Simulated scan of single mutants.
Amino acid sequence: MKQIMTIAALGVALAVSGCGKSENAGGTVKREAGNWKTDIKLVKFEVPGMPEEMKSGMKQMMEGASGMDQCFTQEQVDKEDIAAELAKGPGNGGECTWSKKEVGGGKIDVAGTCKANGQTVDMAMNGTIEAKKNDVTITTKGKVPTGGDMEMVLQMTSVHTGPCKPAGASAT
C-alpha cells in the first residue's frame, strides 16, 4: 500500500506544484494571485489483487483532499516555473524524464517516466491551465510489488475563488 501511495502522491505533487506557468511560444499563462480551491476526483484506480476495502480507502483518501484551499501571493505566482518543476520530479527525492512536454497557450500535455523511492511509473498530464482555472487529468501507470500493472487516473480542478482568506488559509 505504501508504494501505491507513492505513485498517487507523485501525480498529485507534480500537478499541484506546476500549474501556473507556460514555457513555450504559445504564450505565458500564470495563475492569478489569491485563494485557489482544488478538487480531486479519482476517476480510475486498478490494482491487481487489491481488496475492495483498500481501493475504497484509497478513493476516500484522495477525494478527502478535495476542497483544499491554498493562498498564492503575487510573489509566489511570479516565481512559478512549470518547466523547472517538471524537471525536478516529485518532492526532492525523484526525477522525471519527459518524452512529451507541451505547456503553453493555456494547455498542458506532458508524458514521461518518473522515479521516486525505488519505483518507476509512467505519467501523463493533460488539460487546461488558465489564469483563474486549471483542469488537469493525471494518468499514472506502473508495476505493483505483488505483480501486475496498476493504473490510476485523477481529475484535478483548481479554481480561483478571490482574495486570500485572512484566517486559516494555508500558504504553499
Rank of each mutant, 00 (worst) to 15 (best):
K2N: 14
K2C: 10
Q3G: 09
T6K: 13
I7M: 14
A13D: 15
L14N: 08
A15N: 15
V16E: 14
G18W: 03
G18Y: 06
K21V: 07
K21L: 06
S22M: 03
G27N: 12
K30V: 07
A33V: 06
A33Q: 04
A33L: 05
K37I: 12
T38Y: 06
L42N: 13
V43Q: 07
V43M: 11
F45P: 03
V47N: 02
V47S: 04
P48C: 04
M50S: 09
M50H: 01
P51G: 02
E53A: 09
K55S: 09
G57V: 00
M58K: 04
Q60R: 15
S66I: 07
Q70R: 12
E75R: 13
V77Q: 03
D78T: 10
D81N: 15
A84R: 11
L86A: 13
G89Y: 03
P90L: 05
C96L: 08
T97C: 00
V103C: 04
V103S: 05
G106T: 11
I108M: 12
D109N: 15
G112P: 10
T120D: 12
D122W: 06
A124K: 15
N126K: 15
T128P: 12
E130P: 03
K132Q: 10
N134P: 07
T146P: 00
G147T: 00
G147Y: 01
D149Y: 04
M152V: 07
Q155P: 05
T157L: 01
H160C: 07
T161L: 09
K165H: 08
A169V: 02
A171C: 01
